[in-house]
Nucleic acid binder design. Structure first.
Lengths: 216, 216
DNA sequence: CGGCCATTTGAAGCATGTCAAATATCGTGG
DNA sequence: CCACGATATTTGACATGCTTCAAATGGCCG
């Protein structure tokens, strides 16, 4: 999103942050005064329940923007937390600088809106996954989503992509248990659809995977 | 959202629509050229699967805006359909008129953003419902969400509110079957938390309902 | 009154959860 | 470079929440 005007962007940058896997990037329910872009690594937006249960809302890939909410609304409190999945490099910006840079002209405003709507689509797609698909369809669909997002970033080579998610992460994103995610991944491997050699995943049969994602 | 400048709004209004229960307001995947406000009645945003399964993304109550996506993005195709739940009265606007009215000044832009973020929160809350709550917690939570939204609109009297949802609607919102929704509502009634006399619902024990929504 | 639609209820099956233990993997320090 | 501990994956047996399918009941509107 924010890549539309590199010059002005660089001027607005405040700090560069590096975090390790599983570290908290931003706590839930605390006012945000920074916007971040994810330069390297994966992260996620996650709701924590008091008793330890987690629900991952969406995964964030390189180039994604975190805390976009801070741009239009002052002192917005995120209803979720942000966590690193891998090692992560973040660029931090002051929302005010960005709101000038991104909202000043019509064109930037549209880019911004398109980005937010894209994120909304992701979450809604996840809703349909959890609500109306069996475990195997949901897992297949999640892999496809990540595959296609990474392909757009040119991060897929020969149908092989980085896949740093633990089975626990997949479970928390899809409302399953790690045990069942394990069995489901096994089934996808047995079907010859994917091949996992951590931290890489290769899609062996793209159409088959798509079929599995839609069926039942 | 759009209520911030009644005069200009009235000037932008194009048509008033009336629809009956279950009628389609806007088909999925077709470009949108209108923005609507829901004047009377309930509606929902819903994903239809080829095989008949449905996933309701969110419920829309009086005062809500439909197709906000058309304001910043031309020819946006909704990834979901819009359906009336009750009799419905809609006011239609041309996006261009609104983008002037709502995006011209800083203040209106913020209102717009705040509204989109609110909708996003709803969907994300629903995600947590489906993913990490038992049926009873999810149903309790949904009732609470609607109760609180209606209360803000001053549409709750003596803890009684309109409740035009069929059990099938609840099921499609929460990823359950009608049979199980029925048993779950029965359980909530037996617990003395709610009382249903269609199309009304009375909350008998607000704290108890909240406890049920969080527990387990 | 009759037909349609929604709710209610039952019995049986299955997908997924739960709990626990064994195995594999990885990062780290010796 | 190896050994260790911590963490993640894999697997099993069993429990259960939810689904499926079907039929009965109830409410509403023409």
């Amino acid at each position: 999103v924010l890549a539309s005007d590199p010059g002005r962007l660089a001027a607005a940058r405040r700090e560069v942050l590096r975090l390790r896997p599983h570290q908290l990037i931003w706590e839930a329910h605390t006012p945000i005064n920074r916007v971040f872009t994810l330069k390297e690594g994966w992260a996620c937006r996650v709701i924590q329940f008091p008793d330890g249960r987690r629900q991952i809302l969406s995964f964030l890939l390189p180039g994604d923007t975190l805390c976009v909410e801070a741009i239009p609304v002052d002192d917005y409190r995120l209803p979720y937390a942000l966590r690193a999945i891998t090692n992560v490099t973040l660029c931090a910006f002051a929302p005010d600088d960005l709101s000038e840079a991104t909202l000043a002209c019509q064109q930037h405003r549209k880019l911004f809106a398109r980005y937010v709507l894209g994120q909304l689509e992701l979450v809604q797609g996840r809703l349909a996954d959890i609500g109306r698909r069996r475990a195997i369809g949901a897992v297949a669909h999640l892999i496809l989503e990540l595959y296609e997002r990474l392909a757009k970033l040119d991060l897929v080579e020969g149908r092989e992509m980085a896949f740093p998610l633990r089975q626990e992460d997949i479970a928390d994103a899809l409302g399953l248990t790690t045990a069942h995610v394990n069995r489901t991944l096994l089934k996808l491997r047995r079907l010859g659809l994917i091949e996992v050699s951590p931290p890489k995943l290769r899609v062996l049969n793209l159409d088959g995977l798509r079929r599995e994602a839609l069926s039942n």
